[in-house]
Structures are given as structure tokens and as C-alpha cells.
Design a binder for these strands. Sequence first.
DNA 1: AAGTGTGAATGCGTTCACAGCA
DNA 2: TGCTGTGAACGCATTCACACTT
Lengths: 208, 208
Amino acid sequence: MKRIAESTVRRLSAYLRFLEEFEAQGHQTISSGELAAQGGATSAQVRKDLSFFGSFGKRGLGYSVSALSSSLREILGLGRQWNVVIVGAGKIGAALAQYEGFRARGFNVVGVYDEDPARVGGTLDGVVVRDQRELEADIARLKPHIALIAVPAEAAQALVDRVVRSGIRAILNFAPTPLTVPEKVTLRSVNMALELEILSYALVNADD
Amino acid sequence: MKRIAESTVRRLSAYLRFLEEFEAQGHQTISSGELAAQGGATSAQVRKDLSFFGSFGKRGLGYSVSALSSSLREILGLGRQWNVVIVGAGKIGAALAQYEGFRARGFNVVGVYDEDPARVGGTLDGVVVRDQRELEADIARLKPHIALIAVPAEAAQALVDRVVRSGIRAILNFAPTPLTVPEKVTLRSVNMALELEILSYALVNADD
DNA sequence: AAGTGTGAATGCGTTCACAGCA
DNA sequence: TGCTGTGAACGCATTCACACTT
């Protein structure tokens, strides 16, 4: 299949969220225009995005809400459970471990790790914080698919190396530092201070 | 001035971070190539990014680390303190309120708000959680520049409307829902479940 | 009549390549 | 010689416009 732009995947995700709401309201069909209105996209964009994966609509009618929902879940790989380990049980790690939005979408936190003895043994939303030294053994045993990195910037690369060596292929990084991974591994980063700096730039350059 | 792409601003921020490290190591000058190696950019990209704002380098020599640092701080609006209010003192709001990365970059949390009486009055990293009903009065008084929205999806739009009406011009949203703001307001969103879904897509479509 | 699916046109960010200066 | 600054070329995502289907 053709290479799909990340921006497209991002929007598919948004479409799916809205479709689920729309379905709950009892609607049967939806047009590309209605779907677009939601996330600030255009109807052409919606149709183009979907066209990369097939023809899901009926001309003159629109899309079946339920059929399109399940197609999108299929495309995004959300028709299954994903197991997630969280590395770092500080403020951010703890908040992530207890975030309901993950479980609701099929992402199960199967382990939380920290190196601080004061944190090890504690419980976060039913998951016990384990010693970071158990990481390799646990990954071998539990075979989680995704690792969330929530440790200080200085420690992040070493931990990424460890989880990659243990077989993890997808990483979501919250440490404010650039990281490198082998090509076969997908790495995404969320950098909250960076987001604020972009707002800072916008505020300083607002022309009004 | 010409419109600058968000991706450019994002990279400028990364350059600045690295320049500060590099400066701490006692280096005087740096080339576009060295600066690029860091964040996976190319030297041409670095030079192009900087060229939007002026000529900061010396041909044949490179850039003065300290001069470029302060130019970037100036450009990004980081030569000052920004005041931030956090709306929502749940798991995410609390983690944000205690995040050191913000203060380190000049973002001061001047208020945290919640509607749950059980949370109001509590303390997060020295800041007292206040009643959400005080929001308007406090914004009028403290004149914060940025609002962080960390409430459930259903409540987010109403609160965004309130802070916008009170004069806030920059918002960072953590609620997993699309929001609308007037044109003069800059809105950015961090959606953690969405990031995981992009990883899910990558895992399902990995060709190996 | 309504709304999809899609080639073509457009716009925009990135990369190239080289002239210009220290 | 070394590295910047930048117009030109390129590639890719978005938008347009319309043929096609129900």
C-alpha cells in the first residue's frame, strides 16, 4: 500500500472519534461534509483521506456510520488490545498510568517501572510500580507492544535503548529531549514545554 | 514579517535547547551542520530556518553560540516570564502544575482551578487550587497570558469559552476533543490517546 | 439532486546547489 | 578554504473541480 502521511492518520483518528459519538446519537449515515465540519477539515480532505484505503461511501448518500467506524478501527489497528508499559513513575508517569483515556481505546497499562525505591511497590490505578531492573525480564514475559517514556531527559536515551533491545517497536516519549531509535522502531514525542514555547512565539508575534 | 511555518518554530526551539547545552560546555561557535545533527535536521534546513529572521552567522566560521541563543530567545519570546493558569486539578492538571520543565523555561503557574470542592483548597507545588468560579475574577486580576485546559472532554469547550471571554489569547488543551476559538486566539492541543493510535497504526502497518 | 471518488492544479515546506563573504 | 545565505528545483499534502453513481 502507498505510504500514508501522518497528518492523514491523525485525521482518521479524529473521524473515528466523531463517528462513535454520532453513532451513539442513533445516526445511520453521514456525509463527508458533516464529518469534516467537526475537526476543521474540508469535505474533499475527508474523501481523499478515506480514498487511500478504499471506497466506503455511496454516491449521493454518504457513508454508513457503523460500517465506516469499523473500517477505520480496522485501518488504525484499534480492533484489538495493545499492552503498554510506562517507564518512570514520577508525576507524569503516574498521571499516564491513571489516565482513563488509554484503557477506553484498548491500551492496557501492564506495567509501571521506576528506579526510586521509594516509589517501587506503590500502586497506581491497580498497577504495582516495579523496579526498573525488572524491565527486561518483564518485557520478555509480558511482550508489551508500546513503551511510554516518562523519565528525566538525562535518563531517557538509555531507557529507550533498553526497551528497544528487549523488543519494543513503538515508543511514546514524554522526556523533553531528542532521542534516536533504530529504523524499525516508531518513536513519537510529546514535549509540553515545547508546546508552550510555540504559544509564546504566537503571543509575541500576534499582529493586532 | 513573512508567515513562519509551525515546523520552523518547533525546530528553532530545539536549536535553542541544544545551544544552551553547547554553551554550558564552553563552546564559542557552532556550524549549521553541528546544530542540525542534533535534531535530525539538515544543515540547509537550519540555515533556511534562521534566514527567515536575519543573518546570524559568519561565512566560513559559523554562529556565535551565545549570540544565536539570545537571538532565538528573543524570536521565540522567551526573554521574559509568562504567567499560566491551569484549569482542572485532576491527574493531568496536577502533573502539569508540578512539572519543573515549565518554570525552567519561564512559564509560571499562577493559578490552578477545579470545580470539585474536594480538590479546592489543596496545594500543588506551592500553588493553592482555587474554585473554578473564581476563574474570571482571577484572570482579570492576574492577567495570565496562557491557559492550560486539563478537564474532561465534555467540559472543555465551555471552559475555553470562559477563559477566552476573560481575555486569554493562548491556550494549550489536553482534553481529547476538538475545540473552537476566535481567530485572534492561538489554540494548541496535546492528545495522548491520539499519539498512541498513531503508534497503533504504525505497528499494524509495519512491513517487516 | 445529492454526495462520492479522483485526476489535476495549487500551495507550501524541504532540499539542492551555488554565489558570496570571512 | 570553509561555511553562510538564498533563489531555484523538488516533492508532497491540500484543494479544486467535475465525472460518476444512487
